[in-house]
Write a protein that binds this DNA or RNA. Structure first.
Length: 192
DNA sequence: CGGCCGATCCACT
DNA sequence: GTGGATCGGCCGA
């Protein structure tokens, strides 16, 4: 079943990042449905997190999305090329978010591969946040859209990930965040 | 208005 | 392992 507002409004983005492992991220782009089982996430803890775009309470046109109520997408352009998909969590004015870093193809795999420019499935085909967005047809123009509607949403289809199958470690590409770069806010699910 | 740089990916050595 | 691609956002002047 589709995740509702309650799932996204929790205060603990780290817990939500963990809970998202095994959930299924769907998109419906021009009537083409594709989906992937989430296998890797990272939590970004808002104003107190030097790795977050909202660190120190920064509010700009771009980051304003993160300050809204949990349950919407925060998608932004990275390195001028890649759209990175985040789930906004927590309450109004608490800018927490969870980055989806990897999925395992679940539905529409042919189209997912085609969007990636691949002819066959490889282990790394959908590993990496830029690849996830490309495969699912997500781009930064969709930032701010609700995950409770019919374009992008997340379902719990009963895939279980036990604690012993979760690996936690430091986030990727955030060396600039000083001591916060070392926090274990990255979660990976072993072989789903 | 100019300049720097990034929550990345790929090709190439 | 390394460097180039590529461009919107952000900040300082």
């Amino acid at each position: 079943m589709k995740l509702g507002r309650d799932f996204y409004m929790g205060d603990d983005a780290v817990k939500i990042a963990r809970d998202l492992l095994g959930k299924v991220l769907f998109t419906n782009i021009k009537n083409n449905i594709t989906a992937g089982i989430i296998t890797e996430t990272e939590a970004y803890l808002g104003v107190a997190d030097k790795a977050s775009h909202a660190y120190g309470g920064r509010r700009t046109l771009r980051t304003e999305t993160m300050y809204q109520v949990g349950g919407i997408a925060y998608i932004y352009l990275c390195y001028g090329i890649h759209s990175l998909f985040n789930v906004v969590t927590s309450k109004q004015d608490i800018p927490h978010a969870v980055l989806v870093r990897a999925v395992k193809a679940y539905k529409g795999i042919d189209l997912m591969l085609r969007r990636r420019g691949l002819s066959k499935l490889t282990p790394q085909a959908f590993v990496g946040p830029g690849k996830v967005s490309q495969a699912l047809g997500i781009d930064y123009s969709q930032s701010g859209i609700s995950l409770l509607e019919k374009k992008i949403w997340i379902e719990d289809l009963g895939f279980k990930v036990s604690d012993t199958d979760i690996h936690a470690g430091p986030r990727i590409g955030v060396d600039y965040a000083a001591e916060d770069a070392l926090l274990p806010y990255r979660f990976m699910a072993k072989d789903i």
